[in-house]
Every structure is written in C-alpha cells, then in structure tokens.
Design a protein around this nucleic acid. Structure first.
Lengths: 227, 227
DNA sequence: TTTTTGCTGATTGTTGACAATCCTACAAAT
DNA sequence: ATTTGTAGGATTGTCAACAATCAGCAAAAA
C-alpha cells in the first residue's frame, strides 16, 4: 500500500480539449468539419463557456481554425500543408536522433523501438490496419520522447495529429507495410550503434518523398475517377 | 485612392491574447507572476469570459501555466528549461538553415540578415541595449522565416518568447556584443554561399554553450552575494 | 429578368451572476 | 503549546441570458 496519490482534477475546459483532440485524431470530426458550439456543449453536457475555452486551446495549437462570427473548423490540409508537416516532422525527429546519439540511452531506445516494430508487423500481418497505424505513430513518438525534451515532445504531439490529417490526402500514395516493418527494424538497430550521418540518411529514406506520395495520391484519385 | 481594404476584425479573445503575449515578452508580467482575472479584465475593459479564452490560448502555447482553482501564472524558467529552450531553438534554426540552403533564397536571406546585423551593431554601439536585443531576436526570426515553413515559424515564435524569459536567468552569463555582431555578419555571409556543414558549425558556435552560460550566471550571482 | 434591399433564423461573442474552491486567520479543543 | 475546525474573503469555474454577426431567402426596385 504505497503513498496516496493526488486526485487528478482538471477543469472542464482541459477535459474537453483532450476529448476534442482525440475526436479530431480519430476522424470523428473530419478535416473541414465545423464544430457547432450549441450542439457540442449539449452533447458534452456542459455550458458553452468551457467548450469555447477548450476550442481556443486547439485553435492556438493549430488543429482548429477559427473564423470570427462564422465558427470553428477542423483544419484542412492542403498539399502545401502536407509538405510543411513532413518538413517539420523530419526536423523534430532529426533533432531527437542527434540528442539520443549524443546524450541519450541508445541501447534502451533501440530496444523499445524494436519491440514496437515487431508488434506493428504482427498487427499488419493479421490485417489489423488500425492497430498497425497506431503502432507506427507510437514508434515515432517513442523516438522523439527518447530525446528527453519536453518542448520537442509537445510540438511533436501536435504535428502527429496533423500527420494523421495528412493521411486523408495520401490515401493510395503510401508504401506497403512490408517496407515499413523492415525500415523500422533497420532504423532501430542503427540507433543502437551507427553514426549520426548514416542514421539521418536512413530516416530520410524512411520518410520517403512527400512530393512523390502526393503525386501518387493524385494519380490514384485520377484513376478512380476515370473508371 | 486604392481599393478599400477589408477591416481587420478579431474577437476580443484574440486581441487580448496578443496583448498578453507582448506583456510577457516585455516583462510587464514577469516570470512567476499571477494573472488575476478580475483585475486584468477590468484593466482591459472587458468581461472575464474573453480574457479567460485568451489565457487558455497562452496556456496551450506554453507561456502561461494554469493551476486549477488557484490561478494562471507566467511560466518560470528553470535551468532545465533553459537547456531545453536552447536545444529546441537550435533544432528549429538548424532545420531552417537546411531548408534555405536546399531550396531557399540564399542571397536574399544573407542580405536581409546583414542589414539587421548592422542595425544591431549600431544600436549596441550607441548604448541602446533594448533596441539591440530586439534586433538580435529579429535576426534569428528572419532566419527561421526564410525557410518558408508556417509551422516552423509559429513554433519558433513561442520559443522566442521563452528565450526572452530565459534571459532573466542568464544575466551576466552572456557574451559581449562585439562577439555577437561579428558572428551575425559571418553567419550571414556563410548562408550566402558556404556548405551546410560549415554553416551548422558556425550556428553552434554562435549559440555557445548554454551550460556554460548558466554557470557564468550562477557565478555572477554568487559574486554579487559575496560582496 | 436582374440586382438590390430588408428580414429572419442560426450561430457566435460577451456579460454578469452564481457556484465551487482555496487560503488565511482566528477560536476552540486537546 | 499544538492541533483541529470554522468562517470569511478572494479568486477561479460555470452557467444562462443578451448582444452581435452572418447567411439565406423573399420582396422590392431598376
């Protein structure tokens, strides 16, 4: 029987912000969707005040877009946004890699990443794409968190939600899960003992070319239309 | 007589957030200070609602810290925070450098940075430290903005406010303005035509060692107490 | 027929009042 | 002397009502 734990108490605004963040992440509120205050407040069983406060947080975070007197909308991700998200994501992961290699627990990080990669591979092989996708995100999040920088992790959390929104744009333009599994394991091994330049090159290959992915997505959409 | 320009209209919450951000930046609300809702709402001439919304934005941004039922405070910057801010700042500026060198307007960026460096040097030489400090921030902000990434710039804006808060901790631990001016001009020249590895090395030298700066600040504070 | 104006309903923006919580000071109990 | 309990004041958290704005539609004017 350990020490008593402080009760977790958060204002409604915090709780709502977290719920909305989740709902955006899972697609319950898809890109471009308007969040109606009256309807949402009723659904959450609260007044509009704390709901508005929560939405202001997410506006500041960049996940929602506010138009005065017209409403608040889930951001839509243009092709330009996709490129920007991938650029910033690469910058953050690269910085994390440098920190891990310079001052981090290389072996521990590599082991954690390998474990996630194996679970992801297993999920994909059994056809559980949703779980596989979540594990893909967990892999990258673990990598960034291993750098031990609160600000880096916080920024990356937002970028990850935006990355999910980007995936709506990239359907059909992404690589096969076999490639991903192989690359995840290779990257984890390199983090254990390779040189920083080689690791960065591997990360760059892993990310692929967002321009190419966008083109593929466009081609796939065009092919779908021509049928 | 040109075309009429659209009126710039923003909700009170946005305007207040911007004002508060400024006040934190300039030290009107110093680190650790509590922002009293009733007092502030009265000072701004508004009700507490939009003020609360504004504060939620800044909480999400990381500049304010909320304790439920106790209030909202300007963040305080621990030594650990100083190191983290400098780490993330370096990561963002490094990413910006890579983007500029790979795809940006190298000559244009170098020219803009040189101009700012000269104005900063002039301000410092005439003893105008406040203006010089502002220009130092403008130099780095211009560098990051030249990468053309909205998300990078937005993240950097927050990190810059936090950097200002860090300066409260580093008084006495910072280098002379002569070094800064020389380095700013050298970095700008390298951005025009040097290789990315050399530019990164120069940026790292320019940032110096935050650990060292913290130690110097501690030593200076100790010397002040021993007197 | 087309364009402009006015009205209505829906939604957001703000306000003030009440509820909830915390902190401090003081009195009572141990 | 120390600990516990209570009350009051200050502040934050939430709610409901009213104000302000926009979009769409119908009617009036050109």
């Amino acid at each position: 029987m350990g020490a008593p734990r402080p009760l977790v108490r958060a204002p409604l605004s915090s709780q709502i912000a977290e719920r909305l963040r989740d709902d955006i992440r899972t697609g319950a509120h898809p890109p471009g969707a308007q969040l109606h205050e009256v309807e949402l407040a009723f659904a959450f069983g609260v007044s509009r005040g704390p709901l508005r406060e929560a939405m202001q947080r997410l506006v500041q975070e960049g996940l929602l877009r506010s138009e005065p007197h017209r409403g608040v909308f889930v951001i839509e991700v243009s092709e330009e946004d996709v490129l920007d998200v991938f650029f910033v994501r690469a910058a953050l992961e690269t910085a994390a890699l440098r920190r891990i290699v310079d001052h981090g627990d290389r072996a521990g990080t590599a082991a954690a990443l390998r474990a996630i990669a194996k679970r992801m591979d297993k999920a994909m092989k059994s056809g559980n794409w949703a779980a596989g996708g979540d594990l893909d995100f967990e892999y990258h999040r673990t990598l960034v968190d291993a750098a031990g920088s609160a600000r880096l992790s916080r920024t990356y959390a937002t970028v990850q939600v935006e990355t999910r929104l980007c995936l709506h744009r990239l359907m059909g333009g992404y690589r096969s899960s076999t490639d991903l599994a192989v690359e995840h394991l290779r990257l984890a091994s390199m983090i254990a003992d390779a040189g920083i330049d080689d690791i960065q090159k591997e990360l760059k290959i892993h990310f692929g070319d967002p321009d190419l992915a966008l083109r593929r997505a466009r081609d796939a959409a065009d092919a779908g239309r021509a049928t």
